[in-house]
Write a protein that binds this DNA or RNA. Structure first.
Length: 266
DNA sequence: ACTCAGGTATCCT
DNA sequence: AGGATACCTGAG
C-alpha cells in the first residue's frame, strides 16, 4: 500500500530513537517492524512516499494507530524555540514520531532494558520471542503473551540473557496473567497514578515506569531520564529544565534530546 | 581482558 | 530523604 506523508515521518529517526526494539533497518530505504503479531515492511520510495506491504484494511485497523498518524508532530517540532540547544535537537530529530506500541510488550521490554545497551536489549527480546512467542513466518516471531512466558521454564528463559531481570519478568507475567483486565484499569488512571501503579512492579523504577507510560500507554508528557538525558540536562540546563513550556508534549521533546544528543556524543 | 550499558533494590547515614 | 553499592550478561 502506498502512503503519502503529510507530517514528520522518518523511518531511520524512529528506528534509532530507542523507543522501539523490533523496528529495524534492512537497508537505507527499507525497514521492518514486528508488532501486534504482524510483520510490516516499509519502503521509502521518495521523501514523501512510503510503500508498506499491508492491505488498506490492515493499515486502517493497525498501522495508522501504530504510527500515531492523528498527531501533528511537525507542529510540536516547530513549537520549539528560545533555546539554541533544544532547537538544534528538534531540527536534527525531524521525522520523529512516538509509536503506539503494545502495552504489555513495552512493559517487559523496558524491564529488560535496565542496565543494558540497546543492541543487547534487542538481542534479548528477539531470543525471548523465538523461544516462546507464536511463529508468524519463517523468520519472525510474535512477542510472547504472559501465559507463554509463565509456561516456559526459568532455565529456558535464562538463555535469553535476561540475567537478574528474569524474576522481574516472571513476576510481571504473573501480574498480567492473574489480572486479565489490568490494561483497562491502568488506562483509566491519571499520569501520576499510572506511574505509581507501574512502579509497584518488581524491577520497575522511575525511568522504566516513565518509558512504559510514554511508549506503551502513549502518555506524551512523560520525560524519562536516562544517562543520556541526564548528561544533556546537566550540560545544557544547569538551572533546571522547565517542564511547563512544552506540556503536554514533554515526551516528544525528550525524544528529540535523546536522539540528537546521543547521536552527537557517542 | 575489561568496561559500560536508556536502572533498581537494598542498605546504609 | 539522599548517597553508595551489588547486580546478570552482551557488546564494543
Amino acid at each position: 500500500m502506498i502512503y503519502k506523508k503529510t507530517d514528520d515521518f522518518d523511518l531511520k529517526t524512529i528506528a534509532e530513537s530507542g523507543q522501539c526494539f523490533r523496528f529495524n533497518r534492512i537497508d537505507d530505504s527499507l525497514y521492518k517492524t514486528v508488532a501486534f503479531d504482524r510483520v510490516l515492511h516499509i519502503k521509502e520510495v521518495d521523501s514523501k512516499t512510503l510503500d508498506l506491504d499491508c492491505s488498506k484494511k490492515d493499515f486502517d485497523k493497525v498501522w495508522h494507530r501504530y504510527f500515531d498518524l492523528d498527531t501533528d508532530y511537525s507542529s510540536i517540532r516547530r513549537s520549539v524555540k528560545n533555546n539554541a540547544f533544544l532547537c538544534e535537537c528538534a531540527e536534527r530529530s525531524e521525522g520523529m514520531r512516538i509509536l503506539n506500541q503494545d502495552k504489555w510488550e513495552m512493559t517487559i521490554s523496558f524491564i529488560i532494558s535496565q542496565r543494558k545497551s540497546i543492541p543487547a536489549i534487542k538481542t534479548s527480546i528477539e531470543r525471548l520471542c523465538r523461544l516462546c512467542g507464536d511463529r508468524i513466518d519463517d523468520e519472525n516471531y510474535a512477542f510472547p503473551t504472559p501465559s507463554q512466558i509463565l509456561l516456559t521454564s526459568s532455565d529456558k528463559l535464562s538463555e535469553c540473557g535476561l540475567g537478574y531481570r528474569l524474576s522481574y519478568i516472571q513476576s510481571a507475567a504473573d501480574l498480567f496473567y492473574s489480572e486479565p483486565d489490568i490494561l483497562s484499569r491502568l488506562e483509566k488512571l491519571s499520569d501520576d497514578e499510572l506511574l505509581e501503579e507501574l512502579k509497584k512492579m518488581q524491577g520497575v523504577g522511575d525511568k522504566v515506569a516513565s518509558c512504559i507510560a510514554l511508549f506503551g500507554f502513549h502518555r506524551l508528557n512523560f520525560f524519562p531520564k536516562d544517562v543520556w538525558i541526564n548528561r544533556a540536562l546537566s550540560e545544557h540546563f544547569k538551572d533546571g529544565f522547565d517542564f511547563d513550556t512544552y506540556a503536554p508534549f514533554n515526551g516528544v521533546i525528550q525524544q528529540y534530546i535523546f536522539y540528537a544528543f546521543r547521536n552527537a556524543n557517542r
